[in-house]
Amino acid sequence: MRLASGNPGCPSDFALDRLQAGELGEAQASSLRQHIAQCSPCEGRMATRQAGFAALVDLDERRMLATIRRRLDEDPPSVRSRLLAALRRLSVPLVAATGLAVLAVVLIGRAPLGTGRAPGTDPGTDPGTDPGNDQTREKGGLSLSVFRLVDGHAQQALSGDHFAAGDRLRFVVDLPSAGQVAVLGVESQGGLYVAWPTLPRDTQRPAGKKQELPGAVALDASVGKETLYLVLCPSSGPAPSSACEAAGSVDAVPRCPRGCQLSAFVLNKN
């Protein structure tokens, strides 16, 4: 029994996949095309490749891509959390407790030395850091969930999803501590705007999970990538909606006062 696709003497799936991807030299590509033109099974195999996801009718590629994007957004455990977890496993409690205390002092003092700043950490220490370099997301930390209103129902969107002009969004936030809240947007050109609150509101919020921010915002007609930032600033300082400044590009974290924390959500508008 032959397991490979095609007839004996036909090119491998690997060869056809490379042809489809445009990765073969002209001579090899030409030779393959000649074979395909004269071979019905290979013609079908190639047509399947050219059809892309359209040939895989049961597959929801948008959902798959959204899952991939969401997983990519979920950063791997930080060095800090791995070290702490390892220390917790130590058999001598006294040693572990001492080590944790020393480590916490060292790490807190040297937070910018890591591979990136975690969402929910103080951007005031390094306001220009690229959000793409973030490597940690602390469990139970600052989090922004975005819901799209469709036919009167709210559907949760994923960071990286595609949005259209007129889409109405609502925000639900997890706050690790009480403070002043705003949702800021960074346009594809780098400009900063306030997505929430759009009306004068009390932006003070207590600590807690799944807090819905009242009201909805409608997306304008501009296209391209935009990044929303949930900003949580100390209650005693200036309001984040007025105190944060644009950092110049869509991938740059807004500059906010020291002590503020940020969490990002990417919109692809088309």
């Binding site: 892309g52 891509l65 959000p131 793409g132 960071s159 990002a264």
Partner: peptide, 17 residues
């Protein structure tokens, strides 16, 4: 946080491969 600067567009890579 959502995308890594300087890397290919995941959407294009996913649709092609």
């Amino acid at each position: 946080m959502a995308t890594v600067s300087g890397t290919p567009d995941i959407g294009a890579l996913f649709r092609l491969h």
